[in-house]
Structure formats: C-alpha cells, structure tokens
Design a protein around this nucleic acid. Structure first.
Length: 918
RNA sequence: GGGCGGGUAGCUCAGUUGGGAGAGCGGCGGCCUUACAAGCCGUAGGUCACAGGUUCGAGCCCUGUUCCGCCUACCA
C-alpha cells in the first residue's frame, strides 16, 4: 500500500493539485496528493479569489462579536508597492487574521490618499508628453484629467496589496477625494475656522519654486551641504568703512532692509553713522540693535531680509522694517532686485558675488558647512518666502494629543517613540495647510469682490452675507493632503454622518505604521480625532521598522538598491515574503533585508508543505479528532509542545512581538514537529506497533497539523489554506477556523511536563548515539548495538518502554538495558542525564579516537564544574542569592560531578584497551 | 548644537523584570535513511565595542570613552 502510494505520488508530481480542484470542495485523498515541491504561484491567485468571493474579509456592522478595527495607512494613489508597504500590510494582515481566528468582528478599512503634489506632478508629466500644459487647459479640465488618470492607474497599488494577501474589507475602500471624505474635510475646515483655530495670514513659509507651492515645515528635508560664507562690507552712507556682514545667501542682500548688531557688542559701540548703504542697490538701510544677533558668529553684524528668512521676519516685525520680496514664486529675481530681475536665484548669486568683488566689497569667502532644506517631493532647494497662506493654530490641539498618550488612552508601542511624539507636539508650530496647486480639496473660502468680506462656508454661497453681492471669488488654494489624512480614522467610517460603522468601530483598535510619518500623520490624527470625536482615534499605535537594504541604507530608486516585493513574490512566493518580514520585525530596530533570508523562509514554507504531504499519506478520514487514548510518549510530548507553542504565539502577537511569534512557530514546526515527532511517529504510522498506537499517532498527527496550520495562517495564509482544504475533517476556509484552545469541540491538549522531560531524555540518548557515530565516522548505513545503564529503576523502565523508538531513530540493531553492572569494555560511551549510553565498538570503533573524544568531553565538563563550584564556595552567593537559584546551581553541580565520575571511569577503560591494543 | 538608537559567531540579527551566551545563513565532516537535497545527521566558531562602577552575580543597570546610523535645530 505504501509503495503504491509513493509511486503514485511520484507520477503525479507534475501538478495534481492544479487539476480539477474546486473551491471549498473536499477531495478524496487518493487523487489529491500534493506536489513534491510547493508551487506558490497557482495556489495564491486561486485562494485570494476564493476568500473574496466568499466575502470572508467583510466586517459585520450588526454583529455582537468584539469589534476590532484597523484603518490602513493610505498609500499614495500614485504609489507602487515597495518593501515598506509590504511590511506594513503584512503586519496588519497578521493582526486581522489572528483576530478573526479569535472570533473578533474585524474591520480593516483600505484606501488611498490623493497625494496632491505627487499626483499633480505625475499627471502634468503625462500631459507634457502630449504637449499639454495645465495652465492652457484651465483648472476644471485639468482636474478632469487627474480623475481620468486615477481611474486608469489609481488601482495599481490596491491590486498589489491583494497580491500580498491583504484581507481588507474592499467593500469599504475609501479615497481622500471621495464625496464623503471631502464633506468631512470641508466641515472640519469650517468648524476650525469658526473656532479661531484656522486663520489666514502673510508669513514666511517654505516655498518650493518648482512645485510652486507652500510646504509645511516637516515637508522640508534638511541635508548637509558644503557651502560658503561670504563676508560683505556694507559701507557707511558718509565716510569710509562700514560693518562687514557674513551670509551664505548673498543674493538675498538685495532684499535687505536693515543691518543688525547686538547692543552689547563693543565692536559696534561707536559707529560713525546709523545707516549704511546697501551695495549694488544704492538704497540706504538703518543699523538696528537687537540681542537676537549672535556676537560670536561671523563678524557679529547681521543683514536682515524680512521677506526671505524666518528669523529676519521676526526681527523685522520687532523693528517695523519693510518686507522686500526679491525672489519670486518661480525662483527668479523680481523687479525689486533691480538689474538682476528675471535671473534665476542661483545665477543671481554668482553675479552678485562677482559684482561685489569688483567693487572691493567682498572681504572674504570661507567654507561653511550647513544644512539646506529640500522639497520632500522633488528635492528642489526650498526658498523661505513671504506669502499669504492658511494656517492651523496647532498648540491647543496638540495639548489634547499629548494628554491622551500621557494618560495611556492611546498606547504607543514600542514606548520609546513616545518621547519623539511628545517632543514634536510640545514644540509644534502652526501648520501651513494651503497649497498652491489644483489637485486637492479647494479651500472653502470666498472673498467678496465688492466689500472684501471673507466667507468660509460648508455650502457654496451665492451671495455675500454682508453686502449681498453675488460677486464672490473663491480662494484658489487647496488643502494639504495630510489635512484630509488626519481625518482618516473617522472620515472613512462615515463621519460627519452618524453611522453604525462609526458607532461600532471608533476608536479603532490599533494603527500600524512606520515612524517616519509619526508627525505627518499619527500626531495629526490624534489631534483631529480628539477634537472632533472627543475620543482617541486608536487604542494602540504600533510603530514598526523601516526596511533597509543589506548595508542598512534606506531603499530608494535613485540609489538603485530596492528589492521589489513583486519580484520577491514571483521568485519565492507571497508566504515566504510575509514570513520573512514578520520574522525580521523585531521591535525598535530597522530591517536589513537580504535575499538569502527570504530563500531560507521559502524553504520553511516548503518544509511545511512536505510535512503535510507526509501526513496525507497516512491520514485517511477525519475521525481522529480527540487524541486522548493510548498516546505514546512522542504523542504526549508533541501535544504538550503544541499547547506551549500556542500560548507563546498568542502572547507574542498580543504584544506585537511578531518576530517572536514567527520564530516560535519556525522552531516548533521544523525542529520539533518535523525533526522529531514525524520521525518518531513513523514506526506506529507504518504499523510496526499495534493498531491502537497507529490510531493514536494518526489522531495526534491530525491534531498537531490542524492546529499548527491555524497558528501559521495569519503569517502565511496561502499555503495554510491550500493544505487546510485538503486536510480531512476541516470545513470551509481556514479563515473561519477557531484559534487553538478556543474551540469547545477541540479542547487544548494537556501540558505534560513529565512527557516533555521523558522525551528529552530519549532525544538525548538518540543524539548521543548519533554524535558518537559522527565523531567515529561510522556510516549511517551501519547499524549499531547499544548498552544503556542507569541506576534509577524509574528511568530504566521508561527507556525500556521507548526501546523501539530509540532503536529506529538511532539506527540500532540491538539495545540492552541494565540497572547495574559494567558496561561492555569495548565501547564508546556518553552520559545523558542519569543514563550511560555505550555504543558497542566490536569491529566498528577506533579506540584511540574514543579516547580523544572523551578527553575533549571531560575538559569541557571540568570547566563547567569549576565555574559552578566557585559559586558554591562563595559564602556571599549562598547567603545573598535567592534560594531557588542556589539550589539550581547546587543541583547542576552535583549532576555534573556524577557525570564526570562516569566519564572518567570510561576513560580508564578505554585507556586500558588502548594500551592493551598497542 | 540637541535628542534617540545601535556595536553580541565569518555574515544578518534575537536575547521581555540581572541568575548556566542563541537562531538563520555561511563553514566543516558524513548521508539520495520509505514527506522534503528547497532535504537529513553531526560539528566547529563569541574578552557580548572599550574602560570603570553597582551587585553574591552584568550582554542586560550606572558613569565615561569610541565608532556607526537616524531624527531634530533659526547660529546668519
């Protein structure tokens, strides 16, 4: 029968599983043998479709089950899946699938954000290829074009999430430009405006001359730069000389409206004038005194450009200085720059420097390393610029957000991120939310063309409430994309309407994201959630790692070091990728991904596959659900280990220790279940013992495989579903299974410490024999004879009862046991706990080799004993250490001593043989 | 400038209240042993960056040094 199955299997190895498989349909085992190697491709697409068609991802608004909700960090609609997404999605999917197994009513809301600047850039590039330009088209036509683009390409990343196996409730997919979400944005804007938390004003903001829009402070990326420090003399209006200022941006001097020194600075106490002539312009500007000026930097004299430097702006306000804008929104010099008008700002810098040099006003140029801000979207150097913009007054909102984390209404995991969160919110400045682009939520503000009145309204107004004029002009700006993202946890659930969804699932359970958007997004969701819902948006925030390349660099297209998750999926399968990411997701550390590791976990998936293949050769029906009668030692052992593993996995997942959960499963499946249990159960399964033993082994095998598949499912959904569907006695999808221990029909197996200890001894004996075999270079094909000696009668009967098992796994032809007497002289011996294991050497063992082996062993043991003895001789240790620790050390010491006595006796015997031989 | 994280086997990394240093990969030796060569069996390899301190006991706690990485900041 066995050989027949085997043969059939070999013949079928080209795709039996791919043929004639019907969704959800159980198949007779004999025509349902698995391929020898796991082929992820065909399996994955099939099961994802099945889950969707069975509606298994959908949350139930009317269910009484414990709600569990996650909102996805919405990827950019222009986005393409990268490893960061893959990790983020995998972790969320693990949590969601785990919660479903626990019986929770899971809602995982997917969606994308409209990514204002990025999307506009992409579409403009597209149009440029067709010789089109948004300014020619006009705003409405352009917006239509963006929507068209979105229809066509916007689902790319969503489809990629599906490849990852993401079990999102797709029926609730949202987009930040949806009608509903747009309504939420508008309401929030209006309410905040009415509360005085949104205002409009002309301030220095970060301006990207390429995107031609304002950027928020955190949208500016700073990078170190080897710059120059130019020392320029500003001559007195009358007479010779004049103070020298130092600047890194000489072109801005054209917009200077003062020269400042510190009032305490002796060097500038008695200046002959209170004005200087601004070079190249001929304008006269005042000398002002302000203690903002750092006397120790440069020359102690500072040029003041209120329109192009945030600090100068403040100084200018204090001294009531004019603001002269010399650099325009396009990055070119304005008419205020006189003859430099129209020049690019960097071109202008060169000419300014040349000119100053000609006039002898350039005193010196120093090298000066400083950092420069770049646009986070296009890397263009940001220009601080004076500009009318909309701002959110952040401080009052931030206070609530701080309080919620301080008193643990929201828990941030790992805790270390709390500091960053607090520090940012405590020092937060007002948030510039207007953007000078077209794609996004247009600011709901109108100015009356007749009376100048500003109208901010949820509904489009048709006349000015003040003067009843119909001549209303809408603000052209749109809002920062993050403004709408900040509402995501409640806007996606239906707010501002009162929906059942909102009622049931807000606050959400956990937010899973990377630290790089802690400020952009998490902090802002906290602020908005608390302000508008009066409750935190999520109970937990789990911050995961950033994925880097093997050298620890951030993966980026420009560095060319990206590992594309889609490539990985194609080469190794989704499950392998997911398990790798989970195994790497240790808290508080970045992930350095290497292909080697992925390969290793691909092998793990294959291992699981093959263990199932083995199981299916034996399991024929599903009658073996209650393994409680006639269990062998390995049966009891593996069931006990299964229980422990289940507990460990659940504990780890409850605390977001994904790598620990994954590691526990890897260890259990491969090194306990496959390496030991499957091998140990073979004699019984192949009918070498009685029928009762075979049944018990089948029960156990079924149960362990069944539970293990469920435990693994959140990590590797595809292969587990594939095997599950073929496992007799299972119903429907594995997604509907119950987490081990929570099914009243399948109570958790006992934790059996006795079985674990006994099995450990047996495994130790087997390993000892294998070790001797290896060290002596005895071929595995040679069967051996072993003599086991123990003074303990309990132990003796236990190892006797496991005789067949030991003989099989250690490849013995005979095993003798005794409770007293001498071991055979010509043998190699190892000590395992209280058992002396002697491998008879007649004809197979090299005596001198055994002598060397024993020497090594004894030396090792001696070290251990002396370390332990040292502790025990220390009175302080005995008196101060806890009793259980002292007891443990004493026990260990005694055990090692006994082992040592035995080993030394063995050495004597071998030495005698050695000399006898020679 | 400030803050944070890290330095553990050849490589990549675990190590949860302080109590006998671990895994994967790679290396070495041996195996096609009736699920799996994407496999099986065995095995070598570490002054836990350095120097002090606390403690009966430190990879873990404290101080200092050093190297690397990240975040943050208005020193022109």
């Amino acid at each position: 029968m066995l050989s027949c199955k085997k043969g059939q299997q070999r013949n079928n190895s080209s795709g039996a599983i791919n043929n004639g498989h019907h969704f959800g349909a159980k198949q007779i085992m004999n025509d349902n043998l698995l391929d020898k190697g796991y082929e992820p491709k065909t399996v994955e697409a099939r099961w994802y479709k099945y889950w969707e068609s069975e509606n298994l991802f959908a949350a139930d608004e009317s269910s009484d089950a414990k709600p569990y909700a996650i909102v996805i960090p919405p990827p950019n609609v222009t986005g393409v899946l990268h490893m960061g997404h893959a990790l983020n999605i995998t972790l969320q999917d693990i949590l969601c699938r785990y919660q479903r197994l626990l019986g929770s009513n899971v809602l995982w809301v997917p969606g994308t954000d409209h990514a204002g600047i990025a999307t506009q850039n992409v579409v403009e590039r597209d149009l440029a290829a067709k010789d089109l330009d948004r300014h020619q088209m006009g705003r409405d036509k352009f917006i239509d074009a963006v929507w068209e683009w979105r229809e066509k390409y916007g689902s790319t990343i969503i489809n990629q999430l599906k490849h990852l196996g993401a079990s999102c409730d797709w029926s609730r997919e949202r987009f930040t430009m949806d009608e509903g979400l747009s309504r939420a944005v508008r309401k929030v804007f209006v309410v905040l405006y009415e509360e005085g938390l949104i205002y409009r004003g002309s301030y220095i903001i970060n301006w990207c001359p390429r995107c031609r829009t304002a950027l928020a402070d955190i949208e500016v990326e700073h990078a170190d730069h080897d710059g120059r420090l130019y020392h320029i003399r500003y001559p007195y209006a009358a007479g010779d000389g004049g103070p020298v200022v130092a600047t890194t941006r000489p072109e801005t001097m054209l917009g200077d409206t003062a020269l400042a020194v510190n009032p305490e600075d002796d060097r500038y106490l008695n200046m002959p004038a209170d004005e200087v002539v601004l070079p190249l312009t001929g304008r006269t500007i005042p000398i002002i005194y302000d203690d903002y000026v750092d006397m120790t930097f440069g020359t102690g004299a500072l040029k003041i450009t209120p329109a192009h430097d945030p600090n100068d702006f403040i100084v200018g306000e204090r001294h009531d200085l004019p603001r002269l804008k010399v650099i325009g929104d396009d990055g070119r010099m304005t008419a205020e720059a006189g003859k430099f008008e129209g020049l690019d700002r960097f071109e202008c810098r060169k000419l300014v420097v040349e000119e100053l040099e000609k006039q002898g006003l350039l005193i010196k140029i120093e090298n000066h390393a400083h950092s420069i801000g770049h646009c986070y979207r296009c890397q263009t150097i940001v220009e601080p610029n004076l500009s009318p913009q909309w701002f959110v007054k952040t401080k009052p909102l931030a206070q609530q957000a701080i309080a919620a984390v301080t008193d643990d209404r929201t828990r941030i995991i790992p805790e270390k991120w709390k500091n960053d969160y607090f520090m940012w919110l405590e020092n937060v400045r007002d948030w510039c939310i207007s953007r000078q682009i077209w794609w996004g939520h247009q600011v709901p503000a109108w100015t009356c063309g007749d009376c100048g009145h500003l109208v901010v309204s949820e509904e489009d107004p048709d006349q000015c409430p003040k003067c009843q004029s119909g001549n209303l002009l809408r603000d052209n700006d749109v809002l920062d994309t993050w403004f709408s993202s900040a509402l995501w946890p409640f806007s996606t659930l239906g707010w501002p309407d009162k929906t059942a969804l909102l009622d049931k699932f807000y606050p959400t359970s956990v937010l899973v994201t990377a630290f790089d958007i802690l400020f952009f997004w998490v902090a802002r969701m906290m602020m908005m959630g608390l302000h508008f819902m009066k409750e935190v948006p999520f109970h937990h925030v789990y911050i995961h790692a950033l994925v880097r390349d093997e050298e620890g660099k951030k993966m980026s297209k420009s560095t060319g070091n990206v590992i594309d998750p889609i490539d990985v999926i194609n080469n190794y399968g989704t499950d392998a990728l997911r398990f790798t990411l989970a195994a790497f997701a240790a808290q508080g550390r970045d992930i350095k991904l290497s292909e080697k590791r992925i390969e290793g976990y691909r092998n793990f998936i294959n291992k699981i596959w093959n263990s199932a293949r083995f199981a299916f050769m034996h399991i024929e029906e599903a009658e073996h659900r209650f393994p409680d009668k006639g269990l062998s030692l390995p049966d009891r052992w593996i069931l006990s280990r299964l229980h422990q593993t289940t507990d460990n996995v659940a504990e780890a997942l409850d605390e977001y220790r994904f790598n620990e959960a994954a590691g526990t499963l890897y260890q259990f499946v491969w090194h306990e279940f496959c390496d030991w249990y499957l091998e140990a159960s073979k004699p019984a399964l192949y009918g070498k013992a009685d029928e009762a033993s075979r049944k018990a082994a089948l029960c156990t095998l079924w149960r362990v495989l069944h539970d293990t598949l469920i435990l693994l499912h959140p990590f590797i959904p595809f292969v587990t579903e594939e095997i599950w569907q073929k496992l007799p006695g299972t119903k429907a999808s594995i997604m509907k299974a119950r987490f081990p221990g929570t099914d009243p029909e399948l109570p958790a197996p006992d934790i059996d410490t006795e079985a674990e200890a006994d099995m450990e001894r047996v495994m130790g004996i087997i390993t000892a024999v294998r070790n001797i075999r290896g060290e002596m270079n005895i071929s595995p094909s040679v069967t051996l004879s072993v003599f086991l000696l123990t003074g303990d009668n309990g132990t003796l009967s236990k190892i006797r009862s496991q005789g067949e098992l030991i003989k099989t796994l250690a490849r013995l032809d005979s095993m003798e046991t005794a409770d007293s007497g001498e071991r055979p002289k010509a043998s190699a011996t190892a000590i395992v706990q209280d058992v002396s294991v002697s491998v008879l050497l007649e004809g197979v063992i090299d005596v001198s080799k055994e002598s060397v082996r024993l020497d090594k062993e004894i030396a090792k043991l001696e070290k251990e004993i002396s370390a332990l003895a040292k502790k025990l001789e220390n009175d302080n240790f005995i008196s101060k250490a806890p009793v259980d620790v002292v007891e443990k050390v004493r026990l260990q010491h005694d055990e090692n001593r006994e082992k040592m006595i035995k080993l030394e006796k063995n050495r004597q015997t071998i030495r005698a043989l050695e000399t006898g031989q020679s």
